[in-house]
Each structure stands twice: as structure tokens, then as C-alpha cells.
Amino acid sequence: MNTFKFLTLVTLFIGFTSCSNDDDSTPVLEIESETVSNLQATQTADYSTNPPTITGDYIKFSFETGTTTTSDNWDIAFRGSTIIVNGGEATAADQPIRTANAGAYIVTGTLAGITEVNTELFTSDSSANGLAIPTGSDNGWYHYNPSTHIISPIAGKILVVKTNDGRYAKLEILSYYENSQPNDDLSNSQFYTFNYVYQPNTGVTTF
């Protein structure tokens, strides 16, 4: 008898809660966890000038589609070891125009362990304060070893990104080399592999 009562209550409860969801008319989208492998972002440097002239296209990436894009709806873009966000202003003439108000910050932890977005920490690219994701060894996401010349992502550095349409994503860069293995002359560098988690629901600051 008690069991029957209980089951009825549960059924009613479930019915009620699902009803309220329907009323909201915005279905909760599932959080997307993906891996991007070997995203190539080649830059070339001409050392005959001082300072050296760096050239190459920024490869734009959209978390919504989970792919690279050439449209204006990009979130972050890669060139060499530099990562820019689609927010703020260009810090050099050859960067793509920022079309949105995206931002980023770096936090220490594991990808799974970072469950909350701290919206106060976001910065955008700025000609005065530099990029939201700083360049240079140990400043941002990577460590450069001056003796082996290998660029390795610093363990525990998670990039939290506000996308071009105000949603959130977090990513951990795993490798800077094609197939995650630097070759002898390091000629297979500038290939990003990273894990990311994308929260597709607007305004939701948890993962």
C-alpha cells in the first residue's frame, strides 16, 4: 500500500516537473565534451628584420559548431603559440577584426574540476593590456624549454572562454605537435590538440 502511494507521488512529481519544463519552452541542451585533434595554425617568421616579422592566418574556432570557421562567429583563434579571443581589439594589424564581446581567463585546475565560471575574471584582447591569453613561456598556457625548444602545455592550466554569443566553454590544451608527438626537428609543431567542454545553454555558468 505504502509502496503504491509512494509510486503515485513520484509519478505525479515527475509529471509536474516535466510540465514546468515544457512551459519554459527552452529545452536544456546537453553539455558538449569534445576533443579537437591536430588543429593546424601555422605561422612563419622572417628573422631578417628586427624585430622578426611573423606572418600567417589566424585559424578561427567556434565552440558552437565545434569546428574551425572563416565566418565572423568565431570564439577563439590560433596562430603559432598565440591564441586570441573574439572580443576587445586587435593588438597587431594582421589580426582578424573582433566582431563580438568574447573573453577568456586562465585558471589552475583539472578540466573536470573547474565546474563554475567566474564571470568577473573575463578579459578581452587589448592593445594596452595585451591578450586575454598571454603569450610567452610560462605566461599563459605553455612552457618553452630553451634547451630542447619544445613547447609543452603547462599541466593544470584551464582556459575558460566566453563565446561570441555569451555562452561559456572551458578547454585544456594537450599538445602543440601533430599527433601529440614532437618529431626530431620539431617541424610538426603548431598543431593543437585540446579537450573542451561547451555549455550551450545561455546564461548557465556551470559545467
Binding site: L111, E172, S175, Q181
Partner: peptide, 8 residues
């Protein structure tokens, strides 16, 4: 491994 996810 060099390219596996981080842990504490």
C-alpha cells in the same frame, strides 16, 4: 603522458 589530461 605528454598529451593526456592533467590531474592534481
Amino acid at each position: 603522458t605528454p598529451s593526456s589530461p592533467s590531474f592534481q
